[in-house]
Nucleic acid binder design. Structure first.
Length: 477
RNA sequence: GCCUCCAUAGCUCAGUUGGUUAGAGCGGCGGACUGUUAAUCCGUAGGUCCCAGGUUCGAGUCCUGGUGGGGGCGCCA
């Protein structure tokens, strides 16, 4: 009895004439003769030829959609045209039945909304299968890119007492009994009795801690879960998402932009090179989806074509001030099509970003030097005293994929900003000390992992590129 | 948080100005078929029309409230 072989190995090595054993889930069983198996080792399936007269009728009946079977037999050259090799079944064993009259999934098109309600089965579908293989590949590519470029992977804390980052609403972390919260004499919550003896939260960013790393190791990056308790209901937001945050000593805002562009392009080229089967499928899927849309709502390019296009062109780099000028000269503004007026001092709205990326330049755009009043306290003030060295990388369809900045390394300036913005200075004592003791110019950015996966897979909703999405009111799986 | 749309068979949907017994395709189940690739063909079962209330002679259809979900905006990554 041969040992089990993974389908990926059979399809790449094609040991024709040998006796093999595979295990996998049934994708389809046509004419009681053609059994299509997938074992997750690759996106491709293996076709098994079943001579039904040689097998027990009761067994054949149980070979249903997504049932799990083990098949032993000889690998031969295929007579059909869509595969090179196939397996002639000599022995079939049912590992796990999947009664079709009760199983919610069906071998047909299902909506993403329906699949989300069956999240424990959904990655068995072709689309989610392709997405999560890609997600893995990109996670690997991220580590590889940074490792190959001399970065160190820094693990920043998930539980933090830092309340000053200002990146968003936070989830509280406590072991206190919520039904009976201990109070101090003046009626406040007595945090001294909590686990950490102070209020703590789930992190909204590892950036401030990454800066500690950068000022010792030179180039570091974080890659971990991040939490935002915002009541955001969009196709681009999650309450729990994964963020990549490189932080580099001696990098200014231009070095930062160079890195961001090179990094993102590396991820795209990695996907194109290593996941052609998945991308071809996702490309076709997107075409099929868009057939239901009116022509003007469809994407101008297919998925793969768009990825190649992004790789082939330099990202546009403009200042915020220039972006506002261009927006005010634009057709949609003159025709009153914008809901919000582009105005110096106000943040760019989603409609403005979309116009710049999809209409004006038709490629990714990096906007830098934003007004300081709309950006975070730690961003470095420019010499004009009005703007800060912030940058956002804007992509078609998903908008802001990266936000970053050169950090304010001058102690007095940073302290002034913290005071001006009313942030409790006491909590940031260690952050300020980084500027007093051996500080240096440094920069970094945050990339939303799921948004990148969304862009590369063409998925419209961010909930379909993370296995177990956390959104307001939803934590079932 | 704001705005908006949707909820009919297991799934995707149709259902006319309110009218009698609620439909299709796919899937399921039963059968035929030994080279299929979304197989095909024949047959068959399957419904609390999301929930509660209201208008009406009569509600899947209209109104109010609720629940669940989608999309847009804001916040951001």
């Amino acid at each position: 009895m041969p040992r089990r072989t993974e389908i990926a190995k059979l399809l790449s090595e094609k040991p024709i004439g040998t006796e093999v054993k595979v295990m996998g889930w049934v994708r389809s069983f046509r004419a009681r003769r053609f059994l299509i198996l997938n074992d997750g080792s690759c996106f491709q399936n293996l076709q098994v030829i079943v001579d039904f007269e040689r097998f027990d009728e009761a067994l054949l009946r149980k070979i249903q959609f997504h049932a799990c079977v083990a098949v032993q037999g000889q690998l031969v050259e295929s007579q059909g045209k869509d595969q090179e090799v196939e397996l002639l079944a000599e022995n079939i064993e049912l590992l796990g039945a999947c009664p079709a009259d009760e199983y919610p999934l069906q071998p047909k098109r299902m909506t993403m909304e329906f699949l989300r309600e069956h999240a424990h089965f959904r990655m068995r579908t072709l689309t989610l299968n392709a997405v999560f293989r890609m997600r893995h590949g990109l996670a690997y590519a991220i580590h590889k890119y940074f490792h190959d470029n001399g970065f160190y992977y820094l693990h920043t804390p998930i539980i933090t007492a830092n309340d000053a980052e200002g990146a968003g609403e936070m989830f509280h972390v406590t072991t206190l009994d919520l039904a009976c919260v201990p109070k101090t004499e003046d009626g406040q919550v007595d945090w001294k009795q909590d686990f950490f003896e102070r209020p703590t939260n789930l992190t909204v960013s590892g950036q401030l801690e990454a800066e500690i790393g950068a000022l010792a190791l030179g180039k570091v990056y974080t890659f971990g879960p991040t939490f935002r308790a915002e009541n955001s209901n969009t196709t681009r937001h999650l309450a729990e998402f994964w963020m990549i945050e490189p932080e580099m000593a001696f990098y200014d805002i231009h070095d930062n932009q160079d890195l961001a562009e090179d990094f993102v392009k590396y991820l795209i080229s990695f996907a194109l090179k290593h996941y052609p089967d998945e991308l071809t499928f996702l490309d076709q899927r997107l075409r099929n989806e868009e057939q239901h849309l009116p022509k003007d709502k469809r994407r101008p390019m297919g998925l793969i074509e768009m990825l190649e296009f992004v790789l082939a062109h330099d990202f546009v780099r403009i200042t915020y001030t220039e972006a506002i000028e261009r927006l005010r000269r634009s057709k949609p503004f003159k025709k009153g099509r914008f809901q919000f007026e582009p105005q110096w001092g106000a943040d760019l709205q989603a409609e403005h970003e979309r116009y710049l990326v999809e209409k004006e330049f038709k490629k990714p755009v990096i906007v830098r030097d934003y007004p300081q009043q709309i950006k975070a306290f730690y961003m470095r003030q420019n010499d004009d005293d009005q703007t800060v060295a912030a940058m956002d990388v804007l992509f078609p369809y998903i908008g802001e994929v990266i936000g970053g900045s050169q950090r304010e390394e001058r102690h007095e300036r940073l302290q002034q900003r913290i005071q001006a913005m009313g942030i409790p200075e006491k909590e940031l004592w260690w952050y300020l000390e980084l500027r007093r003791f051996g500080g240096c110019p440094h920069s970094g950015f945050g990339l939303g992992f799921e948004r990148m996966v969304q862009f590369i897979t063409g998925m419209g909703n961010i909930r379909d590129v993370i296995p177990f999405p956390r959104t307001p009111g939803n934590a079932e799986f």
